[in-house]
Design a protein around this nucleic acid. Structure first.
Length: 256
DNA sequence: ATGGCGGCTGAGAGCCGA
């Protein structure tokens, strides 16, 4: 089983790239973020023609998450954190009898100390409780998405430049550690990885060409699944295409 | 140092992202 996560920054713009990528990289499950589409506008037929079923929770203009999958009986279990009436569509939990797949677009936080940063930390706090519940319910749990957190110095092109800033502040990194402390493993770090290997680069100032990036897109797996993980990598190729998303897909492979 | 770019809406310029 191969799974992926990709913040596409508008599925309307990136739809062809996503379908091309899936044709070349036929993963079994992919979580997409920032689709920026109302549900009525989701290109269901395009995914079905490519051999994928799709579940989604979107809104106009902002946010929006989707899960495309093959040969599974996933149904939607949640489109928000429990007890939340948040209009921002950032959560899609799908599951079948064996596996729970939680796709997240965690808030960006804008700037340390801002209202959006407080919203992000509160959101992470509520996520912690929710993932704790899922952990009890599912032996096989995968949590993917745009976390908007670089967990470690290795995940930042210039840690000293970023220290204390949003995406790399201590409370955010602590929230990431708290999630992993629930029994979730960062699949990427199970393996030896290239130095300066990132999943996001700013569009501005030639961020990608200069490799001024961050690793903020993650695939976490419960221990039972992590034991079966045989590889995890970031596919930088789509970031080099014309009109790319600012994020690259991350892929993890599991063997029974 | 501040702004870079790109997508969105709605038909401007401003919001938002990370």
């Amino acid at each position: 089983m191969r799974v992926a996560t990709w913040n596409v920054n508008s599925l309307r713009v990136r739809g062809p790239q996503v379908l091309d990528w899936l044709a070349a990289n036929p993963v079994d499950i992919i979580g997409l973020q920032e689709t920026k589409l109302a549900d009525a506008d989701f290109p269901v037929a395009d995914f079905e023609a490519a051999g994928y079923q799709v579940l989604f929770s979107g809104q106009k203009t902002y946010n929006g998450v989707a899960v495309a999958f093959r040969e599974r009986a996933f149904t939607t279990r949640a489109t928000a954190l429990p007890g939340s009436d948040d209009p921002q569509k950032r959560v899609l939990c799908v599951a079948d009898d064996d596996l729970c797949f939680l796709n997240l677009y965690i808030p960006n936080g804008s700037e340390v100390g801002s209202d959006k940063y407080a919203y992000k930390l509160d959101w992470l706090n509520r996520l912690q409780a929710y993932v704790g519940e899922l952990r009890q319910q599912y032996r096989q749990l995968i949590v993917v998405g745009d976390f908007n957190i670089a967990p470690d110095d290795r995940d930042v092109h210039d840690p000293d430049e970023w220290r204390g800033k949003v995406l790399f502040s201590e409370p955010e990194k602590q929230a990431f550690r708290d999630l992993t402390a629930l029994g979730l493993i960062d699949c990427y770090r199970l393996f030896e990885q290239p130095a300066a290997d990132f999943s996001w680069w700013d569009y501005r100032a030639n961020g990608f060409k200069r490799n001024r990036g961050l690793r903020i897109d993650h695939i976490l797996a419960s221990q039972a699944l992590a034991r079966q993980c045989v590889g995890c990598h970031i596919d930088k190729a789509p970031r080099g295409l014309e009109r790319p998303s600012d994020h690259a897909p991350v892929v993890a492979e599991f063997e029974p």
